[in-house]
């Protein structure tokens, strides 16, 4: 049982290993890398933040739209709903009508909140 998840762990470590190998290969052969072509360049121009060729104005870590927060909050609510839905779905046939009615009540309560958010235009992109 648990050794199945050992495979998952090995896939995680192997994936990181493959990526690092690719990075090292890139570093070896890329210009100004270990073996790559050498050339001179103006570092402050090449490595500046890209902004259509003009100089960057201000910081790039600016304030952003409140809509993102609202979507994130709604997402958390619905994701937790699905976490409750999955165990119910697995034993749906065993629980029968009683379990189904309980789940309908649960979904209905969530949908009331969803309808409220919809009516309050939390889902409206501005």
């Amino acid at each position: 049982m648990l050794e199945q998840y050992g495979y998952v762990l090995v896939f995680l470590l192997a994936g990181i290993f493959f990526i690092l190998m690719a990075f090292i290969t890139g570093w070896v052969f890329s210009p100004n890398g270990l073996l790559g072509l050498r050339y001179k360049y103006k570092k402050e121009i090449l490595e500046d933040t890209y902004e259509c060729g003009v100089e960057t104005q201000g910081t790039s870590w600016f304030r952003f739209n409140i809509s993102f927060y609202l979507y994130a909050l709604l997402f958390v609510i619905f994701d937790i709903e699905t976490v409750f839905l999955y165990p119910w779905a697995v034993s749906f046939k065993k629980l029968g009508v009683f379990g189904f009615v309980e789940m309908v009540v649960f979904i209905a309560i969530l949908l009331v909140g969803f309808a409220y958010a919809w009516k309050k235009e939390a889902l409206k992109w501005e």
Partner: peptide, 24 residues
């Protein structure tokens, strides 16, 4: 693979490096 890896100077170094690893 043999292209130059242009890294912006203003980047946040550690997350900038980790992001492609996580994506893959």
């Amino acid at each position: 693979t043999i292209k130059e890896d242009v890294k912006p100077v203003n980047r946040d170094k550690v997350p900038y490096f980790i992001a492609p690893i996580v994506a893959f």
